[in-house]
Amino acid sequence: MLNKTKAAFEIRDYIREDLFPHFMCPGCGHGIAMRALLWAIHDLNIDKDKLAIVSGIGCSGRVGAYIDANTFHTTHGRPLTFATGLKLARPDLQVIVITGDGDCLAIGGNHLIHACRRNLDITCLMLNNETYGMTGGQVSPTTTRDRYTTTTPEGNYEPVFDACELAQGAGAGFVGREITLQTPSLKSLIQQGIAHPGFSFLEVISDCTEVYGRKNDLGESPQMVLSQKSEFRSDSYGMIADEVFQPRNVKTGVLHKSDRPEYAEAYQQRITDRVKK
């Protein structure tokens, strides 16, 4: 798929420039994730005409509109269902879902686990900013414990999903997580996820700086971006004898990869077998 002679990545080739500047807040991590996605698409030499971006509702859902491709802004929590239909009907399209933590894990949680289980060749990019940014910062399934949201005025008391473990448990063929600070790695992860034949679930640790960050006093955008690494990397801590530093135990990188049969392929195989009979 890689073409060595292709031109350097130029993001303006992949966006709908007339819609810019985009609607996202200053410092919103979704923009960085979007760049990584487009960069990966460029590096994979995917034809824009054959690229379908399906997104849900929320800040993440709006990202798709800025991409110069076949873009589908669907309903809350359901982009995976649209994508399933689209991909099955049009296997020639590269179908990428952009969703958020609330979109994907709360209202769309059922669709996520079944999409993972089926292992249809779709890439699901979940931008996790730990909140419902667009509706004003309510608690989401990934909101860190004790953090404040407009619906947890005393701090979040609900346990948190590990979306990647969930996806892996549900059977996704490819599972990975990355932070926006590590843009080249994020790009590489997305690239691998798209290339993987089967369902790829990619969690991007993004930042809601204006709503969630403000509410929890997490600092300005640069600081939130910086925190991703130390807060989320389990291995950023060497074995230091005089230990104090214990970052959160959340892994990044490719977390799971399997060669389970891809859905459409398995379907066709089964049909062929039946027709032969």
Binding site: L181, Q182, P184, K229, S236, G238, I240
Partner: peptide, 14 residues
């Protein structure tokens, strides 16, 4: 010394 600062700073997770 294994302090991890470079790992924390690396934007490409290398």
């Amino acid at each position: 010394m294994g302090c991890s600062l470079c790992a924390q700073t690396c934007p490409s997770d290398a």
